[in-house]
Design a protein around this nucleic acid. Structure first.
Ligand SMILES: [Mg+2]
Length: 457
DNA sequence: AACTAACTAAACAGTT
DNA sequence: TAACTGTTTAGTTAGT
C-alpha cells in the first residue's frame, strides 16, 4: 500500500533532504500525485481547492490582503453558510470547505479565480501548528476519534499542502510524536479490521485539554505579533499586562476564531480600536462542549502545547507527572514553569498552566514557524472572573460591533472554535494577515463576541 | 546561561 | 524481502 510518499527506501527515504522550506508543488490532491488516494478521494476535497482566491500571481501578497475585497469575494462566499451543522463525520475531515459545500469548491479547480498568494504561501510555508496539534486535529476529526498513522499522514497532507511536497522526514516526526507524546495513545484495532499495519492512535482524554489549549493559542500566530510589541518596547516599568493596548489582546491570540468577523466587521463599521480583550475564546467545540470545564481551564497561555502541564494536571488528575516521556518528570514535578505565560488566549489561568502536550522529548527542536510563540505579557484573570468586556467606551457602539461580528460569524458558519480548526490553512493564512493589519480592533471584536457567547453557554 | 519545547535524523526492532 | 510501524536516542534551534 502504498504509501504515500513514494517509495521510500526505508528510513532513509523518510528524511530526504533537509527540509527547508521548499515550496511545494501544489498539493492539490489530485494533482499531486502523492496523496494517497484514500485520502483524497474520500475524505475530502482537497483542501486546496478552496483557495481560489485572489489572483495574482506573483504579486505582492500583502497587497492582496490589504484589499478588502478579499473578504467579500472569497472569504464569505466560500465559507458558506451553512453547513455548520452537520458536520459530521462525513466530511469528516474536511475543513471549511467541507462544511460548506462539499461540492462546490471541490469542483472548481483552484486555479480559477485567484489563487495566489495564500495558496502559494500555504505550499511553501509550514503550517503554524506543531506536530502534536496536527495529529490532534486529524484524530479528532475522524469519526472514530482514532486513526492509524497512515491516515494521520493523509489528513495532514490533505489539509496542509505543504507536506505533500515536503521531504518525508515529517512522517518520522509524526511517528516520533505519537510515540513520545503522552497525549497520544495506541489502541489496538478492532477485531474485524485488520487492514492496516499498525494500530490506531487516539488522544488520551486526560491530555486533551492540553491539546485544546495549545490549539487555541496557536491558531493565529499573527496575533502574537501584536502581542509582542516589536518596535516599541514599553518602558520597563509598565508591565505588559497592564498596558491597555496591544498587549492585551494579544493574549487572545486564540481568538482567531472569529477573525473573520472581526475583519469584516471592521470594514463595515470602521470603528476605532478597542482595548483589551479578554479572551475567552472558547474551546473547541463539539468536543469540548461536552466538557465545559475544560474549556474554562484553558486557554492559558502558558500552556501552549508544550508538554508540560501542570495546570491541567492538577486540575484533572494529578498523578502523572507532567513529563511525558522520559519518565518522569524531570526533576521535580514542581514544575516551575519557566515560561511565563503566554499570551493566552483566554487569559485566565492563574497559576497553573502548562500543559503537557507534547512529546516531551526533551531536547530540542527545530524552529518552527508558527508554533512557537512568545508573548509574554499576559494578563490573566482568574478563571472565575471573567468580566464582560467592552470594546469601546460607547456601549452602543459595542453592541453594533458585536452584532456585526456575530452576524458575520454565523454567515460564515463559524460558531465554535472547532470550526476554526477546520479552516484550511490557506484561509488561516489570509485571516492571519488580516488580523495583522487590523489587529487590535479585530481582536477586540472577536474577543468580545466570543466572550459573550461563552457566557451564554 | 540554563531550561524547555519542538523539530529532525537515525538506528533498530517488530509487523505485515 | 520490502515497506511500514513504533520506540529510542541524540543533535539542533529558538524562546523564556
Ligand atoms: Mg504516546
Amino acid at each position: 500500500m502504498g504509501p504515500i510518499i513514494g517509495m521510500s527506501p526505508d528510513k532513509k527515504a523518510e528524511t530526504p533532504g533537509m527540509q527547508g522550506e521548499r515550496v511545494g508543488l501544489r498539493g492539490l490532491c489530485g494533482g499531486a500525485g502523492t496523496l494517497p488516494e484514500a485520502v483524497c478521494g474520500a475524505a475530502s476535497p482537497l483542501a486546496t481547492s478552496l483557495d481560489r482566491g485572489s489572483v495574482g500571481s506573483g504579486g505582492s501578497e500583502d497587497e492582496e490582503l490589504t484589499n478588502l475585497n478579499w473578504l467579500h469575494e472569497n472569504l464569505l462566499q466560500n465559507f458558506t453558510l451553512g453547513g455548520a451543522g452537520e458536520a459530521g463525520a462525513q466530511h469528516s475531515a474536511s475543513p471549511l470547505f467541507d462544511i460548506e459545500g462539499n461540492t462546490g469548491a471541490l469542483q472548481n479547480p483552484p486555479s480559477s479565480s485567484s489563487a495566489s498568494l495564500s495558496q502559494r504561501d500555504s505550499l511553501k510555508s509550514k503550517p503554524p501548528f506543531s506536530f502534536s496539534l496536527l495529529i490532534y486535529m486529524a484524530i479528532e476529526q475522524s469519526p472514530s476519534k482514532s486513526l492509524p498513522v497512515k491516515d494521520i499522514y493523509g489528513w495532514i497532507v490533505q489539509h496542509f499542502p505543504y507536506f505533500s511536497s515536503a521531504p518525508t522526514g515529517w512522517k518520522n516526526s509524526v511517528r516520533h510524536n505519537l510515540s513520545l507524546n503522552k497525549c497520544f495513545r495506541k489502541v489496538e484495532r478492532s477485531l474485524g479490521k485488520l487492514n492496516g499495519k499498525g494500530s490506531l492512535w487516539c488522544v488520551d482524554p486526560e491530555y486533551r485539554p492540553n491539546l485544546i489549549q495549545a490549539l487555541k493559542k496557536q491558531h493565529f500566530p499573527a496575533a502574537h505579533a501584536f502581542c509582542t510589541p516589536p518596535a516599541s518596547p514599553p518602558p520597563a516599568s509598565s508591565p505588559p499586562a497592564t498596558s491597555p493596548h496591544r498587549h492585551l489582546f494579544l493574549q487572545g491570540c486564540s481568538l482567531k476564531e472569529s477573525d473573520i468577523d472581526a475583519a469584516t466587521a471592521m470594514m463595515l463599521l470602521n470603528t476605532a480600536p478597542g482595548h483589551h480583550h479578554a479572551n475567552p475564546c472558547d474551546p473547541e467545540s463539539p468536543l469540548d462542549l461536552s466538557r465545559p470545564d475544560l474549556v474554562l481551564v484553558s486557554s492559558d497561555p502558558n500552556q501552549d502545547h508544550n508538554y508540560s502541564s501542570m495546570a491541567l494536571q492538577r486540575c484533572s488528575s494529578r498523578s502523572s507527572s507532567s513529563s511525558l516521556d522520559d519518565g518522569g518528570p524531570s526533576p521535580g514535578h514542581a514544575h516551575h514553569r519557566p515560561r511565563t505565560c503566554r499570551a493566552g488566549s483566554e487569559g485566565f489561568h492563574s497559576d497553573e498552566d502548562d500543559s503537557d502536550l507534547g512529546d516531551r522529548d526533551e531536547r530540542g527542536g527545530r524552529p518552527r514557524p508558527a508554533p512557537r510563540r512568545s508573548s509574554s505579557s499576559s494578563v490573566k484573570h482568574p478563571a472565575g472572573k471573567r468580566a464582560r468586556r467592552e470594546l469601546t467606551a460607547n456601549p452602543e457602539l459595542d453592541e453594533e460591533l458585536k452584532e456585526a461580528a456575530g452576524s458575520l460569524l454565523h454567515l460564515a458558519g463559524i460558531r465554535t472554535s472547532m470550526d476554526i480548526c477546520n479552516l484550511h490553512y490557506i484561509w488561516y493564512y489570509k485571516i492571519n494577515k488580516i488580523l495583522f493589519i487590523f489587529g487590535p480592533v479585530c481582536f477586540s471584536i472577536v474577543n468580545v463576541y466570543f466572550f459573550d457567547e461563552m457566557v451564554k453557554l
